[in-house]
């Protein structure tokens, strides 16, 4: 299976690990990621105002590129996934946006929301299958208690994101089980880390992060994993009272699959 891949700005800079481990693991699982050409920043936040057009164009270009290749568009960063998936939904449902965006972009043929946006985790679940990942795991992370941190952007609004049950998600927990570790369920796993508020009001972000980390710790977690660079930053840099190691899920996948040793061995 080959996907069009949209890495996004942060995965090229501060979150290189999320990208690198993601690519290597996909390769090991027989999934080809073709980075789309000349992609532009998605804007990082979905423009909620109904009259925003220009701020959605870069996402539409990426979607059109995937459509041109006849591939699904795979994302890894939660924010990119959120923006691109929602803009795609708008292109499917909002006549006004569809008309104006196409008039502006002057594509070979109008883009009408044909591409399918898939998050890396959804690819693992629906394309590879967690059972197959379990079979492919060489270094199961036995006994490690891991808290899945979903945050906001993957789950909400559930009507559009259709990622998982927004209040009781299981996809990352299933992933944790597949790599041999033990998932920890805690109430704050789908509550906000503070996001960009860190720039405006650091104490507000710290308050959020402390609540999340405490909730995970109380449930017995030894580690938190996430799919979002901004969540990663907040959970790490804005933790004050409590602290847990925070990792990208792709890094654990990479470890569990034993890719490193394979390469060293070869």
């Amino acid at each position: 299976m080959t996907y069009s891949y949209y890495p996004g700005c942060t995965l090229k800079t501060k979150a290189k690990d999320l990208d690198r481990y993601g690519r290597l693991s996909a390769e090991a699982l027989g999934v080809t990621l073709e980075e789309i050409e000349n992609w532009q920043c998605c804007g990082a936040v979905y423009p909620q105002a109904s009259d925003e057009i220009a701020t959605k164009l870069s996402a539409i270009r990426a979607l059109d590129a995937a459509k041109g290749k006849g591939q699904k568009l795979l994302t890894l960063c939660s924010a990119c996934h959120h923006v691109i998936k929602r803009v795609n939904h708008d292109m499917q449902t909002d006549d006004n946006l569809r008309l104006k965006a196409n008039n502006y972009l002057k594509l070979d043929e109008p883009y009408l929301g044909e591409a399918e946006v898939v998050h890396y985790l959804e690819m693992l679940r629906d394309e590879v299958g967690f059972d197959n990942i379990k079979k492919a795991v060489k270094n199961p992370l036995k006994g490690v208690k891991i808290a899945a941190y979903y945050g906001c952007l993957l789950l909400r609004p559930s009507g559009v994101m259709a990622f998982d049950n927004p209040e009781c998600p299981t996809i990352i927990e299933d992933f944790i089980k597949a790599i041999g570790a033990t998932p920890v369920i805690y109430s704050q796993r789908n509550e906000c880390c503070g996001g960009y508020i860190s720039l405006e009001d650091k104490p507000q972000a710290q308050k959020r992060v402390d609540a999340i980390v405490k909730s995970a710790m109380d449930a017995g977690a030894e580690m938190i994993i996430t799919a979002c660079p901004l969540c990663m930053y907040n959970l790490d840099a804005n933790a004050t009272e409590h602290r847990l190691p925070v990792k990208y899920f792709t890094e654990l996948l990479y470890q569990a699959l034993g890719i490193e040793e394979e390469k060293e061995g070869a």
Partner: peptide, 19 residues
């Protein structure tokens, strides 16, 4: 004045979009 070593680009882009 707000930059930190680990701060991801995503945060800055978000803030510019929001503010």
């Amino acid at each position: 004045g707000l930059l930190e070593d680990k701060l991801p680009q995503q945060a800055i882009v978000s803030a510019m979009r929001k503010y």
